[in-house]
Write a protein that binds this DNA or RNA. Structure first.
Lengths: 369, 369
DNA sequence: TTGAAAGCGCTAACAA
DNA sequence: TTGTTAGCGCTTTCAA
């Protein structure tokens, strides 16, 4: 068996360049304070030997890993049925790459995996974590905070402040130092429903998302805002609970047609739901948008553009959300004076303790409303 | 500013338990050869202190990382337009998790990222890599092999042996030691087309995928196999090149209807393509399956079940492919006598040098054919 | 500006 | 069975 060729070390480079290890280290890490001719000699040696620093050795002393964990709780396979996370991942990846950080992906399938993830994060393998907390009762966010890892959440966690206007939520000691990125679910819903109302529709229904997710709750709130505004009070039968899936959308639409045959518009919690609703409307001979106008949410382009008719929907920039999450985390990592185990209650970054960043949404008009 | 609380070390645990570091290390790593009462004392100390091993220190000496890179080249955004990779990632994640390995995700956007990825892999940060090589001219696979990292490919790389029956391909020194997992693209296509022929169709067209990917080429080959078999020679006008997207499917279908108005069946390279084709057929008043039967490939359930009519398609178990890739890599890692820089030409695992694992496909009959 | 030397926390010979 | 000891490859004072 051929001898395993071991990678060149700092030592080897130093020997080749005729300098000390310290000097090589300096050059490799930016090269400040090394005279040019020497630095050049070192660089050549690095090149010739194909030297790549051993990250483990480096981490051992610096306590940095240049790696960030992305935690995606995936109790339902729905998560992967739409390209939502893929897009977000792409945004995250771009940003991390630009800052020479690696992306460690932690997918969880259920409770059993929570402990594993918590242990991993507590183990100090990564400099921080980006966490998608999908469900209101998810214990993961809590576990992660206890692990003392710098974290940015994707989507408003349920123990964050209440969405939008009212500040009544059970916000307390809990949400200090919590950072999250979300789109303006409530505002987007508001725009969508407002659009339907402006079209002259008065029997505007809402098919909700899974109400154990803040995004669904916030969209419902946005719907209610407008209905209360415009019509004084909204008919509760116009709201049907669903789950963000096409099948759920179908079911809800059927129920809706049964309950309120006079419905003249539907705001669906997302595009997939709208897809199901459109199908049922067609089955029942309702024309879209003439008889019933439909608006979705997300602007999953491959879906929204392909429906019949093409879907009017609320666009959110998913990739940008990912990017932003990464940027916030990285910034926090750099700013932080104390890198690990931040003292309880320590703010995230000056000026933004416990803050959420909300990205805007835009209405994309196509043919369905 | 509160003092940063540093994590307890082996040393601390040893002190607390009143034993040596070596003993603690033994217990932490399986506990062989430590008498029970002592081991118990150590375990309690670990528990009390909340000790978690420092992976960097461990890697430094063991040269293992318990981490695997997943490289996804993503020159086109199409990659994320369907849930293909998400599913594969899930399978990979499950398998890695089961073996206590972490998943480091490397997404590449183009040439610029190749060097970065190659450097990372060569840097010995991970024990192995799972690589999705999408395009025939992709330099990445070559770079990765040069990096001397144990690798399993997802999808047959173009320098692997030719698919299926004929062995004429330009296989050479290149493909020694190459391991990949793929589904039986050629066989699946064969089944699909055979099914159409058995239905009595004779003017069976094929809308190809992007022909710079082996999967598209193999499916085309499968189509040709049957056509040659059944009809002696196939009409080349029945083959239209496309790109795996719905829009591409539409375009291709239009061209096809123009060229061969008598077409009575279509085998689309994937479900998304079939989706586009169905739409154009409907626009043109062709009934499916009465006038034109349609078969897809992939069985992306959310797509195939929602088409009108529901799509008959060739199913491949995408998640299982991911699982299998991970399993093969992990096995190779364990078997390998030489962990890093395997000598050039060294087989992967005994009995499977340069081998590909092909997963079976099944025809899922729905209404479209 | 450069080098010498002391670890970072852990594993793995080797001794006892 | 347990402990002692020598590094793994790197960064970082501290002296020169």
């Amino acid at each position: 068996m051929t001898e395993a060729v071991s990678r060149p070390t700092l030592e080897a480079v130093a020997a080749r360049a005729g300098v000390s290890r310290a000097t090589v280290s300096r050059v490799v890490n930016g090269g400040d304070g090394v005279r040019e001719p020497l630095a050049e000699r070192v660089r050549r040696a690095v090149e010739e030997l194909g030297y790549v620093p051993n990250q483990a050795a480096r981490s051992l002393v610096t306590r940095r890993h240049d790696a960030v964990a992305v935690v995606i709780a995936e109790p339902e396979s729905r998560v992967f049925a739409d390209p939502f996370f893929a897009l977000q991942l792409r945004g995250i990846s771009k940003e991390l790459t630009a800052h020479d950080n690696q992306l460690v992906l932690l997918l969880t399938e259920g409770r059993a995996d929570h402990a594993r993830v918590a242990r991993y994060l507590a183990g100090g393998h990564v400099d921080g974590a980006l966490v998608f907390s999908l469900h209101l009762d998810d214990p993961l966010p809590g576990l992660i905070r206890d692990a003392g890892v710098r974290t940015v959440f994707g989507g408003r966690p349920d123990w964050g402040e209440a969405s939008g206007t009212d500040g009544s939520g059970r916000a307390g000691a809990q949400d200090r130092g919590v950072v999250y990125v979300d789109c303006d679910n409530r505002g987007g819903a508001h725009t969508a429903v407002r659009h339907l109302v402006d079209l002259g529709r008065r029997r505007v229904a809402h098919i909700t998302g899974a109400l154990d997710q803040t995004s669904a709750v916030d969209r419902l709130d946005g719907y209610r805002d407008v209905m209360a505004d415009v019509l004084g009070e909204s008919d509760p039968r116009l709201v049907v609970e669903s789950d963000f899936t096409p099948a759920g959308g179908e079911r809800a639409m059927r129920e809706l047609l049964g309950r309120c045959p006079d419905v003249d518009a539907v705001f669906a919690a997302n595009d997939l739901t709208a897809l199901g609703a459109l199908r049922v409307l067609r089955e029942n001979g309702r024309r879209v948008p003439e008889d019933v106008a439909v608006v979705g949410f997300d602007d999953m382009v491959p879906v929204a553009e392909q429906t019949d008719p093409p879907l009017t929907t609320v666009r959110q920039d998913i990739e940008e959300m990912g990017r932003l999450m990464a940027r916030l985390l990285l910034r926090g990592l750099t700013d932080g004076r104390v890198r690990e185990h931040p003292p309880a209650g320590a703010g995230y970054a000056e000026g933004a303790p416990g803050s959420g960043v909300i990205l805007p949404t835009t209405l994309i008009r196509r043919a369905s409303a």
